[in-house]
Amino acid sequence: MPSKNRYEERFTSLKKSNKGAFMPFTVLGWPDEETSFSIIKTMIDSGASALELGIAFSDPVADGPIIQAAAHKVIEDGFTVSQALDLVARVRKYDESIPVGLLVYYNHVMAKGIDQFFARAAECGVDGVLIADLPAESADEILQAGSANGVNVIFIVSPLTREARLSKIVTHAGGFIYLVSRLGVTGTDERDSDRDNRLAALIASVKKATTLPVLAGFGISTPIHAEKMMSLGADGVITGSKIVDLVTKAGSNWQKELETYLKQMVDALNSVKV
């Protein structure tokens, strides 16, 4: 466990004031380095509770078309993994206390070397690393590097994760539990209310297994979705594709539209009684 756990501090204080956590996501370096930094600053300034930042990978199997396209552009533009980590360091300078998570694919970690990757991430002020294609079965490969460098290893729980796997996952998990709220890849598709209702039971069983906060992601794009997740027992939500999509469509007006959207989400999460 990291000595200074920003996740724990932030989630505890949110809980005290009865607020849900809002964790927006974007791809580092998208659509370019400076705009990416501005997008992240806008997230912080609009009241994001924590950040989830993705490193663009050439073969992102867990991501839907919106994030894929963003990642593809970042790579085409020649923006590197090491530049992405440098950008995280700038974000950390801008805000000392916001928890910052990295969403990466395992090949980037392996290419740098597992220890070196976690050491560099820690240096840049990263609080948690979620490796999208590293399931709990193989988590042993990185746990040591995570704890040696004071970086939480974040894990995903899905609606199909059974009891036995859940208990394995929570023994390794740090920071928070990333709850995949619907099957499929990341995206902004319509939600299915039957499935949402089954989520309540899943969230309850995760909460029984761990004291870590549960944040719901995948297909969460509106304040109504956020309120729904909170009513089902989640501690907050993660939104990614919606943000990339919104910035893409807004063109030169992106900053204003993004602010408006982020504030709506924050308001929705602040007004829910948890």
Binding site: A62, D133, E137, F155, I156, L160, T161, G184
Partner: peptide
């Protein structure tokens, strides 16, 4: 099992695919 061939092979997929 994890289907390892020496250091190769294994199961490196998103949690959602594990079931």
């Amino acid at each position: 099992t994890l289907g390892k061939f020496g250091v190769y092979g294994g199961v490196y997929v998103p949690e959602t695919l594990m079931p």
